[in-house]
């Protein structure tokens, strides 16, 4: 269980008005759930992820993972970045195996485990390729496999499909739904796409900027259907999907003054 309690992150600004990137945010992420944070730019969703990853210290509040407070980056939280961060000098297999190598896992064993993960993301035939010979979508699959390789407690995904074309993006959403169904990992997923949030989230938290806050929280289970059917088409025309999409859209586009407290 990942527990975010009263977390705030404040950046000093040159004009003296501090930026409240994250303002008293509390959120629990239960095992076996995908929490998707959605919101406009500057709503603090990436700040939240960076704080959980340990890249960024909190100004106030605490984040605990299974009761242990997070103070630095660590192998118990796998991160998938928007821009892929694969090592160009290592082939795909060695990239996936990197975290296992850091743990001192034997070469044959880490390669075997990495091959299984490459199969899971559909890249079994690309193990020996250098990453720069792969497409953007394929590189993100390697990123997901790499983050899963160390068997982290939670997967943190920072707009991982944001830079992909819309067709590849849909394939990746199906892939993630299937990976989640197979591995049962808890996932925190950041996106600015409402459709993506509804497609993938078991919990969707809507965030608003200045200061960065959670303004609403919805439960959904379209992702189970996507995992089952392997198709994101049908759910997107579901009446409940359309209704939620409209509701979230109006929350995000609400003028800043009109927001009142949290709707939890």
């Amino acid at each position: 269980m990942l527990r975010i309690h009263d977390a705030s992150v404040t950046f000093p600004a040159s004009d003296g008005h501090d930026v409240h990137a994250l303002d008293h945010v509390s959120l629990d992420i239960a095992p076996d759930s995908i929490v998707v944070a959605v919101g406009a730019s500057g709503c603090g969703k990436s700040t939240l992820l960076n704080a959980i990853a340990g890249f960024l210290p909190l100004t106030q509040g605490t984040i605990t993972l299974d009761g242990k407070e997070i103070v630095a980056p660590g192998g118990d939280r796998g991160v998938v970045f928007q821009k892929d961060t694969l090592l160009p000098w290592a082939n795909v297999l060695d990239n996936v195996a990197l975290g296992l190598k850091y743990r001192g896992v034997r070469r044959s064993e880490r390669h075997e485990r990495s091959r299984r993960l490459l199969e899971l993301v559909g890249l079994a035939d690309f193990a020996e390729k250098p990453p720069y010979e792969l497409s953007g979508g394929m590189r993100q699959r390697v990123g997901i496999a790499r983050a899963l390789a160390t068997d982290p407690k939670i997967l943190l995904m920072d707009e991982p499909f944001g830079a992909l074309d819309s067709l590849t993006r849909e394939t990746m959403q199906q892939l993630l739904a299937s990976v989640w169904a197979k591995t049962g990992k808890q996932i925190l997923f950041i996106t600015h796409s409402i459709e993506e949030a509804l497609t993938l989230g078991t919990t969707i938290v809507v965030m608003s900027p200045r200061p960065g806050r959670i303004v609403a929280r919805f439960e959904a289970d379209f992702v189970r259907e996507v995992a089952r059917s392997g198709d994101i088409g049908p759910i997107q025309s579901h009446p409940r999907f359309i209704e939620l999409r409209q509701e979230i859209r109006s929350l995000i586009h609400q003028p800043e003054g009109a927001r009142t407290g949290t709707l939890q």
Partner: peptide
């Protein structure tokens, strides 16, 4: 929810963003 029937999913490598490989 009543949605599309079960169908096994596989993920072939997408070709939409594939660069010509090996590079020139």
């Amino acid at each position: 929810m009543t949605l599309a029937a079960n169908s096994p999913t596989s993920f072939p490598p997408s070709t939409t963003q594939r660069r010509p490989s090996p590079p020139p």
